[in-house]
Structures are given as structure tokens and as C-alpha cells.
Simulated assay, not measured.
Amino acid sequence: MDIQIELTAIGGTDGLRVAPCAPGDPGAGQIRVRHDGIGVNFIDIYQRTGLYRLPLPAVLGVEGAGVVEAVGPDADGLRIGDRIVYAGLTGGYAASRLLPAWRAVPLPDAIDSDIAAASFLRGLTAHMLLTRTHTVGAGSTILVHAAAGGLGATLTAWAKQRGATVIGTAGTPQKAQTAREAGIDHVIIGRDADIVAEVRALTDGRGVDFAIDGIGGTMLARTLGCVRRFGTVASIGQAAGPIPPLDVEDLGPLRSLTLARPSVMAYAADPDTYRAAALDVIRAMEGGIAPTIGRRYGLADAARAQADLEAGATTGSLLLVP
């Protein structure tokens, strides 16, 4: 008998319970994967708190890596024993799960399952942001909030590889040091820092080309002030809480900004986009672009992992181990 973590009520982590479950039998076009590791992401928290609604009870978790344990009819190209990684579909907080075969991405021997499980969704998010939302390349200057986190580290490494200059924010000197060790160019420290003034000083008054804001709350309005005319702001989350309404005049015409609200789940829902992006993410992982695993938890401790992530008490990526 396996276990899974079920969300039984919207709200706090007390709505998560450990429940026994039997391994499922894959249907047509499906596989069953036995997890080696499961990534923990803010989208899991947004679903738990009701920002993104799911029918209850629900099993959270949208990425993982492991070994193919059973193969259904028409699941072409996959065999029992294959190592795979996936992202973009809830149901991951479980020892094993059923998965559409097209979402299973083969893992090269050089990539550890734990690293893949804690990195793949962030890799897809970085790919979406740096190639689709705003094309980042040589000469670009970007702003990345929460630079010491798993996504921040991935964005920093990938943007640097593409020739960009990266400015990041970090809540504490310790997190700033983590970001520096990941190769960031400049770090603005402190939740109450005047990020607009500091970004302007670092860019000779121009502002950045592209800013990525997963903080939300009142931070998004401040982020707009960090971007040059005709630059782009991506709002990808709200870890600090709901975002107050913005006036269209906050974007232009004076600032002439583009505001995007891209979803990696939507990005990963298109099979062609998913497969192409996955290949790039795997190549990036092989080249060393992957965040460190900040902390590992047993699957039964998923509630504690979410609480630590929500409190900002972690760096790097978080991993659940069945």
C-alpha cells in the first residue's frame, strides 16, 4: 500500500492529511511512475489556500521524477524501468501516480532524479520567461525577485548563460550570499529596500529591460518603477499576498510598459511546447543549470515543507522523498 497527501479543506496546512492508497493501473496512453522525489512549489500553496481552486479532496504536487513501474496500452516509447521526469499536472504528492505518457521526459544517466524532481518545473518556468515572455540575450539586464530561491537561482544561471546582467533581491544578507554564490551580478538586500532607487543606480538611471516578480502584494507596483520604457514586467505569483488593483496609467503611456501574467501550467499544457521546452531544460540541467536542493522532507512531512516555503525560511528547491 502506498501513501498520498490529500488536501481535504482549503486554508492552512492542517487541511493536508496522509492517506493510504493502492497503486493505480494505467489506462490507454498512461504510465505509472514510482517517485524518487517530488518537487514543492508555490503553486501547491496557491492551490491549498484556494487562490487556484481544485475539487476536493485533491492531491497536490505538479512535478516529480522516478521510474516507470507500469505501462498502459498505446504508451509508446516507454518501458518499465525507464527513468523519467515530468511537470504540469497535479497529483504528485504520492509514492506513485498515473501520468499521461506524453508528459514523461526521459532522464539521462548524468542527471540525478532528486535534482530533476526539484528543478524541472522551475526550468520550464525559466524557459517560458526568458524565451517566450521576453527574449533575454546578450546585453539584457533583468531583475529577479527572491534570487536565493530555486526559481531565482535557475533564472540567474540561465540568463547569465544567455549573456544577460542579473540584478536580484534577497530578504537577508544570508540569502544575498546564496544568490551571489549562484553567480548573480548585483543583490539588493532587505524587504524594505528602496528597490527603485537601487535599480536605477545600478543601471545608470535607465532601469532594467525585464523584471520578474513572484512576490506580489505591494511589490508589483514597486517593480514597475524598476523597468525602462518599453520594458516588460512578468507577474508570476503572489507569495506576499494578493496584488492590489493596478491602474492602466501605471503602465503607460508615460512608462510604456508591457505587463505579462504568464502561467507555466498553461505553457506546459500544450504538448508541442512542453516537449520542445523540456529538451532545452534537460540540456540546461546537463550543463549544470539547476538550483541546489535546500531541504529534503519525507512525503508525510509535506505540510511542514509547505509551511517552511510559505514562511520564506528556505533557500534553493524543496524536495519530498517517498
Results as ranks from 00 to 15, higher is better:
L129P: 06
D109K: 04
G168Q: 09
G163P: 12
G66H: 03
G61I: 01
I111R: 00
G77T: 03
T203M: 05
G150Q: 01
P106W: 02
E63R: 04
T169K: 00
T133P: 06
Q161A: 14
L155Q: 10
V59T: 15
Q174L: 12
I195Y: 00
P73N: 13
D194C: 05
G72Q: 08
G61S: 12
R162S: 13
S140G: 13
K175Y: 08
E63A: 07
L78M: 07
D192E: 15
D82P: 08
V199K: 12
I188C: 14
V59K: 08
W158L: 14
A87S: 15
R191K: 10
I111Y: 02
Q174A: 15
L151R: 03
G137K: 11
R103F: 14
A147K: 06
K160F: 08
Q177S: 15
V68H: 04
K160N: 11
G64M: 06
W102C: 14
A94E: 13
A170G: 05
R162Y: 10
L60T: 05
V187P: 02
T131V: 13
V166N: 03
T131S: 15
G66S: 07
G171L: 03
H186R: 12
E63F: 10
H134A: 14
A118P: 09
L99Y: 00
P173N: 10
A65P: 13
P100V: 04
I195L: 00
W158S: 07
I188A: 13
A201N: 15
E69A: 14
A104H: 00
G171R: 06
A101F: 04
A94K: 11
A101I: 05
D204K: 08
L129W: 06
D112I: 00
P100N: 07
T141C: 09
L121T: 05
G81Y: 01
I195V: 13
D74Y: 15
R83V: 01
L89E: 15
A65K: 01
G77I: 12
L124Q: 10
R191N: 14
V105Y: 03
L129C: 11
